[in-house]
């Protein structure tokens, strides 16, 4: 939708849309004059399509001439239209290919009357022998044309950067605890907390094929004196990874918790997953000064 609104003819103003023919003895044809006005949006786009039969090579030049007939801009197009047979692995057929379109985007700093002229420099068959035939060109000149070349690179670039921004938000903050054990009970101590420092705890769990439908994750936070200031059990349902036969191979589960802990001090985070039998690995990551994209549920804690 957005693409169509960008390339929409809101600013586009057709100046000329016609067929012109270049006779073999003249080698050149000129259109009627049109105005090229300065504008902040878009440019004058000259679009030319050569209508040549199969087996022809054509070199033509698009020229813009000012009111005195002097060339003020020119561009060259090597156009071709060919066909032929192909054979491959016992199969065969014919191919047709052509490249006959040419174009030029022009802007001007002052109002100017210009004419478009098409010059045929070279017109041959595929053997390189000159051909004397009239050539018909479709010419379309529009003003205020927006260059959509930047659109798709822009879409891809901004999408990637947006995803990076989302990813960075999920992993924002300073990681103060990264504890990974091949067991069910990681724990570590770090300096964190404060009134305006959001603490994010990420717990990732990998379980084997004997995992139950639900794990109980016990999270304890204790202050510098060893006093437990937070002790809660969080039930989580793991994601079941099954093999082709539908048999459970392994499970993964993750839990994300947010805390505001006062004051800034040393705190110990300890996690224990129950039942611990099926647990292959548990990772605890704690970050301070974390940020979130959407509002989240935050547990307020105060050490005495």
């Amino acid at each position: 939708m957005f693409y169509f609104s960008l390339s929409s003819p809101a600013y586009r103003q057709g100046m000329l849309a016609t067929y012109i023919t270049v006779e073999p003895d003249e080698r050149e044809a000129v259109t009627s004059p049109f105005m090229l006005n300065p504008s902040d949006v878009g440019a004058l786009r000259v679009f030319v399509k050569a209508n040549i039969p199969e087996g022809r090579w054509l070199t033509y030049e698009i020229q813009l001439r000012d009111a005195q007939g002097e060339v003020v801009a020119a561009a060259l197009k090597e156009a071709w239209h060919e066909s032929g047979p192909w054979y491959e692995d016992g199969e065969s057929g014919t191919w047709h290919e052509s490249d006959v379109r040419g174009g030029l985007d022009v802007r001007s700093r002052q109002p100017e009357t210009v004419t478009l002229s098409l010059a045929v420099l070279d017109y041959t068959n595929t053997a390189g022998q000159g051909i004397d035939e009239p050539i018909s060109f479709w010419v379309d000149v529009s003003n205020g044309v927006v260059d959509t070349t930047y659109f798709w690179p822009g879409v891809v670039g901004t999408t990637l950067l947006s995803l990076l921004a989302l990813w960075a938000t999920r992993h924002s903050g300073d990681q103060v605890i990264v504890a990974s054990v091949e067991d069910s009970d990681p724990s570590d101590r770090a300096i964190l907390g404060g009134a305006d420092s959001l603490v994010r705890a990420d717990i990732d769990i990998w379980g084997d094929e004997t995992s139950p439908q639900q794990f109980q994750v016990q999270v304890n936070i204790s202050d510098g004196n060893g006093t437990v200031i937070h002790s809660q059990e969080y039930p989580i349902r793991p994601t079941m990874h099954k093999d082709d036969g539908g048999k459970l191979e392994r499970t993964t589960a993750s839990l994300k918790l947010f805390f505001l802990i006062q004051p800034l001090s040393s705190y110990r985070f300890s996690v224990e997953v129950l039942p611990d039998g099926p647990i292959d690995r548990t990772t605890l990551t704690v970050a301070r000064d974390a940020r979130t994209r959407l509002p989240v549920k935050v547990t307020q804690l105060k050490a005495v």
């Binding site: 090229l36 786009r45 801009a73 561009a75 174009g103 030029l104 985007d105 001007s108």
Partner: peptide, 22 residues
Amino acid sequence: QRSALVLRDEGSSSGTRYGTTS
């Protein structure tokens, strides 16, 4: 239209499209 040819401007882009060359 930053890639358009600006008339009588030596520093401007060529403005060509569809495999056309300046």
